[in-house]
């Protein structure tokens, strides 16, 4: 069955068909939620809630990009989760790691054949990126996460955020400008090859 047929079957109540769609998109959905929230537990909750909400509201899907429809639910759910966290801040039992990573074990980032030094560099880079993302306003963060981190097209993102293409372009430019400024503040922490320097 192709995606359209899976959607139709799921709309008729076929949970297996819906779960095949979940398998296709769960990696993307979870990573988007993680980048928007910067927190693993919150990202898991937001992703699970998004899929449950998508299943319940599948009849409201009227065609078009299913990926965009689903990611809209994920982004909205992620920001709802962020607002919930702000309303009920939780004090961690252990001190927050200095690099801002919620998981002390960075093994999830390890590539086979990667040296410990390379892994350490990537951990630092990842932490710096996440800290800078966390400082952006919601609309700018969404643009840079979807287009630059996830490599999505402008048109898809416009559909997700339900804004004109021009607005997406403008938001992305401002987000990139702020990310540049923020990452410059981490220049000393970053390996040379990741430093943002111009060659006049």
């Amino acid at each position: 069955m192709n995606e359209e047929q899976l959607i139709q079957a799921a709309q008729s109540g076929d949970l297996d068909a819906f779960n095949r769609l979940v398998i296709t998109y769960q990696g993307l959905a979870y990573n988007v939620a993680y980048r928007l929230l910067g927190d693993d537990a919150g990202a898991q909750d937001a992703t699970q809630e998004a899929f449950i909400s998508a299943y319940r509201n599948l009849r409201s899907y009227k065609g078009g990009s299913f990926k965009a429809w689903l990611l809209r639910i994920v982004t909205n759910g992620s920001y709802d989760e962020l607002r919930r966290q702000k309303r009920r801040p939780q004090t961690p039992l252990e001190p927050e790691p200095l690099d801002g990573e919620d998981a002390p074990d960075p093994s999830w980032m390890a590539d086979p054949g990667e040296s410990p030094e390379e892994l350490a560099e990537r951990v630092e880079l990842n932490a710096a990126i996440q800290r800078c993302l966390n400082q952006l306003e919601e609309e700018f963060r969404t643009a840079v996460v979807l287009i630059d981190v996830q490599g999505m097209e402008y048109g898809e993102v416009a559909e997700i955020v339900k804004r004109p293409l021009g607005t997406v372009k403008s938001r992305l430019a401002r987000a990139r400008s702020r990310m540049q400024e923020c990452l410059q503040g981490f220049a000393e922490l970053l390996p040379d090859k990741f430093r943002l320097t111009g060659n006049p």
Binding site: L15, V22, G27, Y34, Q44, I52, R56, L183
Partner: peptide
């Protein structure tokens, strides 16, 4: 040039491995 570097940097940001499956159980649904 700086902008190109930034985009390249962000695209290299690692994707997290899935901590678990998000498939719905009949009970959940």
């Amino acid at each position: 040039q700086r902008l190109t570097q930034l985009r390249s940097l962000l695209r290299r940001a690692p994707q997290r491995r899935l901590p678990r499956s998000f498939m719905l159980t009949p009970q959940q649904a």
